[in-house]
Design a protein around this nucleic acid. Structure first.
Length: 345
DNA sequence: TCTGGGGTCCTAGGACCC
DNA sequence: TCTGGGGTCCTAGGACCC
């Protein structure tokens, strides 16, 4: 008889802002907003805000200009991905010292599949180990599957531990809006509300046939399972295998010159080609994204006759895809994406 | 609130084939 | 000549997440 299985979801508190504060102790206690180039007069959005900045209504995803209006005295910093990556590696190494299957979900998040009698005790030991190694605090959600562990973390923040299982699902989640579920965003919540489905309990009790009609054969039934906290997705230890690689740029000023658009697409395609080489699997399809001003996004893509990792091939394909667009309007953003071969080189 | 960048997965229509 | 139904691939778009 082994100990019971649990899923733990570990999530660093305000990760990016916390890493910046670590490097610059003078930021401790101050509102800090990280995002874009660090210049709040430029186009860009908030990647993370410290809890001091959040008190002024600054949120991730918010335009930097808006953040500056809400919290003018905040310290604005550019994002520094290599620095966060380095700290993230230390965090994940620390998690792997525990007897668990570890699935890394992002820079600052991981699932652990564990078999222990006292998951709260393990959660606290993880918090202490991460703090000792990186001086960062994290929150831990405990669940009987990934979905419940992930949602539990929201109740654990900041710095706490929370358990959510089948036994407590209804008292904790039943009366919350569907938007509280992991995978239900603004659009779906609104669509559900139009059907009279407002809470998690409403969704759990709704007609699965109706959901399938409105949301499709896969999404419909999945939504109802979500509302019941049902999830059998395993914690996957395997190394992350990318399905696509992409690069995109939003211009500080919209481009009006199509030659400049072509040049930018070519440059992005060469960067994507470098990423493809690093992945070690060739591209099978290349796509281009154009965002017209003010904010209308369109994509075009072409399959490659033969899978390739060559910069010249990927660049040529991107420029071919770009020909599917009618020039003449102002361009806010361009992007290039490569879909990778699933099988291998 | 004038809206980044990097991903994943699902849906749906049309082409094409049997 | 007119007609069916299903399966699969290709492509674009949408929704969501960190």
């Amino acid at each position: 008889m082994g100990a019971p299985r649990w899923v733990l979801h570990v999530d660093l508190d305000g990760f990016i802002a916390a890493v910046e504060r670590l490097r610059r102790p003078e930021l401790v206690g101050k509102p800090v907003v990280v995002g874009g180039t660090g210049d709040p007069t430029q186009r860009g959005v908030v990647a993370t805000a410290s809890y001091e900045a959040r008190a002024f209504g600054v949120r991730s995803g918010m335009p930097l200009r808006t953040a500056a209006r809400r919290c003018p005295h905040a310290v604005f910093l550019p994002t520094d991905p290599p620095a966060y990556e380095a700290v993230s590696v230390q965090v994940m190494e620390t998690l792997r010292t525990f007897p668990a299957v570890v699935e890394v979900v992002g820079w600052d998040e991981a699932f652990l599949d564990v078999a222990v009698a006292d998951p709260e005790d393990l959660a606290q030991r993880i918090q202490h180990a991460v703090l000792a190694r990186t001086a960062l605090t994290c929150s831990v959600g405990i669940g009987d599957n990934k979905l419940r562990a992930k949602l539990a973390t929201g109740f654990a923040k900041p710095g706490g531990v929370f358990r959510l299982t089948e036994a407590t699902w209804w008292p904790v989640m039943g009366r919350r809006p569907t938007h509280a579920l992991w995978g239900v965003g603004d659009k779906t919540a609104r669509k559900l509300a139009a059907l009279g489905i407002r809470t998690v309990a409403d969704l759990a009790a709704s007609d699965v046939g109706e959901l399938a009609r409105r949301f499709g054969p896969t999404m419909g039934p999945w939504l109802r399972r979500l509302a019941r906290g049902e999830d059998r997705t395993p914690v996957a230890a395997g190394p992350y295998v990318a399905k696509s690689r992409s690069r995109e740029t939003t211009f500080q000023r919209n481009l009006t010159d199509w030659d400049a658009v072509r040049a930018e697409v070519a440059a992005l395609a060469r960067r994507v080609a470098q990423d493809v080489v690093v992945e070690g699997r060739p591209a099978v399809r290349v796509g281009v994204k154009v965002r017209w001003a003010p904010f209308e996004t369109r994509t075009r893509s072409v399959g490659l006759p033969t899978p390739s990792s060559e910069a010249a091939v990927i660049e040529a394909a991107a420029l071919t895809a770009l020909e599917g667009f009618e020039p003449g309007r102002e361009v806010r953003l361009v992007g290039v994406r490569a879909e990778l071969d699933r099988a291998g080189p």
